[in-house]
Design a protein around this nucleic acid. Structure first.
Lengths: 352, 352
DNA sequence: TTGAAAGCGCTAACAA
DNA sequence: TTGTTAGCGCTTTCAA
């Protein structure tokens, strides 16, 4: 055991220049103490002679020792990792959620596996299997939200699963969503408060739950104000600027009284609408006020006038997801669907 | 050791409903064979009596056994994981790279840790430490590309690091970038081929390497065609639609002959330019042809006419990054900066 | 064809 | 105050 040089066992550079990470054993050998003692020193556990502790810490530093998480995890039966399973190919919505979630978990020393499985159940299954093999402490599921998705099957593991920005049928599942209905209500109420009475609504395909909920919020706000939501004032179309453009032209040609406001199901639609109105010489917000949904910076700042829009607070959603997942990992049992409040960000397009 | 029921050791549901994953030991116990035999059966190694193998596989399935990757990794000194370190807060560029990379690595059974460290060196350091602790087999670094970033310090580990869509000063580093210069050249050459002679260039802030390289490509193409790049024809501004709008107006007011084409450093600028031109009654592409950069679907499809744009092929970049990282993990030693070809996607805005 | 046991790197309980 | 050792779950060599 005598005082071996640090380069004793492992540190011979291989062909690749890669070298095995030093182990606690290496530290013990160099510091001329037992493994248990090193462990004690590093984890600041029992009592040790200051001198010994110092020496161990010094050696550890010199050797570049860093405990092997896998070995630790094996021992603790806690991997300190979670998996994020996503089926959103684009990432515009899920990326902010990712970020916020990762931020929250990283604070607790938990690392995040990113798994993409765009529209491919087989791939998703492989990912889940892999995550189970890695003994993740929890799984987060996000999705493009056209519809409820089938639940993720984690077998008998009882592993915590949380659905964010996505929903599933399993009544025991825990789902976290933005408040589409509330957001739509906020937008509509704001327009009403500004004196608008003939408020139209252009939105995406009705198979999206979000579309149905936003329409619901829009309707409720109108009804609460004693206004009617004329059927012709609602248009369901694609989620694109061009669709918004066309829908706006259509609205202008209706025999109905012309709307004095249009609440759009997303910012792209709103932008198309603005485009059409400008082309037709309709003043925004003077003649028609516009409100969008998503508060997507690229869109809302580029329109003229800048676009008032509903913000789903995706980062808050991600943080909340992180907190809840941590709670579940800690043993709490959460179920049901929860909605996080949206916010209205007022700019010039609504004439506030 | 006699035939114990499957529920012998672990499977009592805890308070949380979580139960420890069955181990190979559990399988062995239930199947009434030794651990080594189970291992052989599962890994299809040595020769076993078919009967025994069948039984083991059946028991494993019934118990929901799945090998613990951490234990395997510990043994093999290969974690089968890599980390992605990103400082791109927005994700528009890095997300497609992520996806493609993850796809490639997942095919090899390698899982990806996602680490975000937007503009925070401390956080980045923590992430690197964590990844080292997890004994990842490699690290991928992506960044918002305003400038070269300091190299990631992986200590003496000799761990493979690859910089994608980002660059560092370390001459031993391996960097993978889109070919900004080549992309710009493609765009400019295309305009020249269409007969344009007075080609302006509006781009982002010059501190971006991409801006300098794209300008270089633009210039080289002009020079190769015997044209001059008038200094007034180059405008460096912010990366926004509004900036593009203003720059276009500025160009129109120059005492110079009016340009007959504008190559823009990104699609947002191009969109602002289109906006300005439409407002001024300048026909696109008849009077002025426009080409953008990024080929960002949301932009290129929404403009009228639709926008011709340079595609950096980010997914290809991600795939290539995955392949190269795998090669490095396998022991190959790669250095230097490599550029992946960009493509010109022709639409109506250039009058092809 | 199967079993036993060492070892991967670490922690923690127990001995000295 | 320090050392020894039994595991954590798995693979692999060597024995039986």
């Amino acid at each position: 055991m005598a005082g071996n040089a640090p380069t004793d066992r492992p540190l011979k550079p291989e062909l690749t220049g890669r070298r095995p990470a030093p182990t606690i054993r290496d530290v013990a050998r160099v510091a001329e103490v037992s493994i248990g003692t090193v462990s004690k020193a590093l984890n600041e556990h029992g009592r040790l002679r200051t001198e010994t502790r110092q020496k161990i810490l010094r050696v550890a530093r010199e050797l570049g020792y860093r405990p092997n998480d896998m070995a630790q995890s094996l021992h603790r039966a806690k991997s300190m990792t979670v998996g994020i399973l996503s089926t959103d190919s684009f990432g515009r919505f899920t990326y902010p959620i990712f970020q916020a979630l990762e931020e929250r978990l990283a604070d607790q020393g938990i690392a995040v596996f990113m798994c993409n499985a765009t529209d491919d159940p087989v791939r998703e299954r492989q990912h889940v299997e892999q995550l189970l093999g890695k003994r993740v402490d929890g799984i987060v599921v996000t999705a493009r939200r056209s519809d409820r998705r089938p639940p993720v099957d984690v077998g008998i593991s009882g592993l915590p699963v949380i659905y964010v920005f996505s929903q599933t049928d399993d009544p025991d599942a825990f789902c976290l969503l933005p408040d589409d209905e509330g957001g739509a209500r906020l937008a509509t109420e704001h327009l009403i408060r500004l004196g608008r009475r003939r408020i139209a609504h252009i939105s995406g395909p009705e198979r999206f739950g979000a579309v149905r909920l936003r329409r619901l919020g829009y309707r409720k706000a109108l009804e609460a104000a004693g206004l009617v939501a004329a059927d012709d004032y609602f248009i369901s179309t694609r989620w694109s600027e061009r669709a918004g453009y066309e829908a706006a032209l259509h609205l202008l040609e209706l025999p109905l009284p012309r709307p004095d406001a249009i609440f759009c199901g997303n910012d792209q639609l709103a932008r198309g609408v603005l485009d059409a109105l400008r082309e037709r010489g309709v003043a925004v917000p003077a003649d028609i006020a516009i409100v969008g949904f998503d508060n997507w910076d690229v869109m809302v700042e580029a329109t003229r006038p800048r676009l008032t829009s509903v913000d789903m607070n995706l980062r808050a959603l991600g943080h909340e997801a992180g907190d809840k997942l941590l709670a579940m990992i800690a043993g709490q049992h959460l179920v049901g669907t929860h909605h996080l409040p949206a916010t209205l960000v007022v700019r010039e397009s609504c004439g506030a």
